[in-house]
Amino acid sequence: MVRLYFRFLGLHLRALLEYQSDFWVMAAATVLIQVVNLVFLSAVFARIPTLRGWSFWAVVAMFALMAIAEGVGSFFFEGTWRLSESINQGSLDYALVRPYPVVLQVTSAEIGINGLTNIITGGAMLATALAHLDVRWSVGLVLLAVVLPVCAVMIKVSVNLATNSISFWLAGPSPLFAMAVHQVGELARYPLSIFPTALKATLGLVVPFAFITTFPLGFLLGTGSSPWLGLLTPLVAAYCVALALVAFSRGLRRYESAGN
């Protein structure tokens, strides 16, 4: 099943790479965005040592985690963003008669090349940041340093899927709601503690993007008011994945195959 998934992605990748110059434009753009982020952060931190207890490199690590999570979402699950279009045009029909999970057929329907550069630049930023940060590494912590980011990525990907699944109920041609929620990620790249209470609650509970950045990193670095919250990341991830899958399959039962 996994092998087939990568086969789907591979085919799209091959088709995409036929337009090489476009690939480089996209790659350059995503790298440029991260460079601008870094310039911005270093300008900000040139004035002050820490942002509510978070150092420059800690915030770089947060930006990196968000970039990786978004990158994985784009590179491996870009098809999620086409769901509303498929529902709107009734083009899910064939997916429903094939012997492969419908949700995986949907998520593998496209590949976002920007995801690749985001994963690479994000990974490089995270590695550099962790090297500069004062982490007292132990076997357990190393393990968690792998598990927590993986869970963080799962949260982003399943929130994408859950919000896009709303398209089964809201019949519009583009996933406006999902896009709006995605934009909330803009906020989640900063330490949660800088925001007013309402935004804290939103990012911690409603759209749990804080579990992509603030909480897992807070645990690894021992930063923030309650670092132990980071240990909840796997639970939140499991909750998000389950919610997304339930939303998708509930939605699929409502699929009306519009168009004749």
């Binding site: 337009y19 476009d22 434009v25 965005i33 300008a43």
Partner: peptide, 30 residues
């Protein structure tokens, strides 16, 4: 010249954000 307008747009937004001072006032830059 390119089919990939999204990439161009992203690059534009990044450059404008930095050089216009929208992210951080120019006085804060090196």
């Amino acid at each position: 010249w390119t089919q990939n307008y999204v990439g161009v747009q992203w690059a534009r937004i990044a450059i404008v954000n930095l050089f216009s001072g929208a992210l951080v006032p120019l006085a804060y830059l090196p």
